[in-house]
């Protein structure tokens, strides 16, 4: 009985809260008179963004499900609407150009992709695409990093991977992040190629995918060391930042944002 009464009270309180919050939307049209049709509608269809991952001969998917997990977190934390099942593309596929973002994971090495594939990747970057390279070895083997640098040297002649400065907008595109953590905490910075006012390629060497991926059991597949759950949360935050940077570029470097953050002492 007590439980029923509490339930009723809780229900009544919930209705009141709903009534209190509802007018926000109901009042808006009221400012201009009644709307024709529905007063407010959720989108009937949503413009989604894909987070495609490159498939290539070799260990192209060392952290299965990492992008799917990132898509889930992006939907929960931001207004981005990633697809529920990110796609897998090959470099020779026309689907490569369905999205100006590409996730390339690898472990140990990145084999040569072939002339056609590299030409396509070069055009992908020239037209405005961004590639996120993720080294799953977490700093224990520099083979993948070496191969990525060689690949980028071929498809972007004259460009070189350099350290992305700590004050780059990448570290504040959504969260204020100090260190690009992943499954490991080996490197305190990421590498990138900055051309034409944007990051064309980004190389993360702390196994970002390893921090994101969950197994079929629903549990995270790989432990984050040495920081554990906190480190994983920061890895998610950095991953969110990367996608926000990919979609908004240097939006958070606009003067209005910088001045506000400095004024509120939220960023130094």
């Amino acid at each position: 009985m007590l439980r029923t009464r509490r339930s009723l009270l809780a229900g009544a309180a919930g209705l009141c809260a709903a009534a209190a919050t509802r007018p926000l939307r109901a009042q808006e049209p009221g400012l201009f008179g009644p709307l024709i049709g529905d007063e407010f509608r959720e989108p009937t269809a949503v413009l989604t963004v894909d987070l495609p991952q490159l498939q290539y001969p070799g260990k192209w998917n060392p952290r299965p499900g990492a992008m799917r997990e990132l898509a889930v977190e992006l939907r929960l934390r931001t207004r981005l609407e990633p697809v529920r099942e990110p796609s897998v593309v090959t470099a020779e596929s026309r689907k490569l150009f369905d999205t100006p973002f590409l996730y390339v994971a690898g472990e140990g090495q990145l084999p040569a992709l072939g002339g056609a594939a590299e030409t396509a990747l070069g055009r992908f970057l020239d037209l405005g695409g961004m590639i996120l390279f993720d080294a799953a070895d977490g700093g224990t083997d520099l083979g993948f990093e070496r191969d990525v640098a060689a690949l980028l040297g071929r498809i972007l002649p004259g460009a070189a991977l350099t350290r992305v400065a700590a004050d780059h907008v990448l570290y504040r595109s959504f969260y204020l992040v100090d260190t690009p953590l992943g499954r490991t905490n080996t490197f305190d910075h990421v590498l990138g190629i900055h051309e034409e006012g944007r990051l064309k390629a980004l190389l993360v060497r702390n196994d970002l995918g390893g921090a994101l991926a969950r197994g079929e059991s629903g549990l995270f597949t790989w432990p984050c060391t040495p920081g554990g759950a906190d480190q994983r949360e920061w890895a998610f935050r950095f991953a969110v930042n990367i996608l926000l940077y990919a979609t908004c570029t240097d939006y958070k470097a606009d003067r209005a944002h910088v001045e506000t953050l400095l004024r509120n002492r939220r960023w130094r």
Partner: peptide, 17 residues
């Protein structure tokens, strides 16, 4: 813009350039 997406990115890049 109501949400970040590739269309927002493209227009921002063009205007910012």
């Amino acid at each position: 813009a109501g949400r970040p997406d590739w269309d927002v990115r493209a227009l921002r890049t063009l205007l910012g350039r």
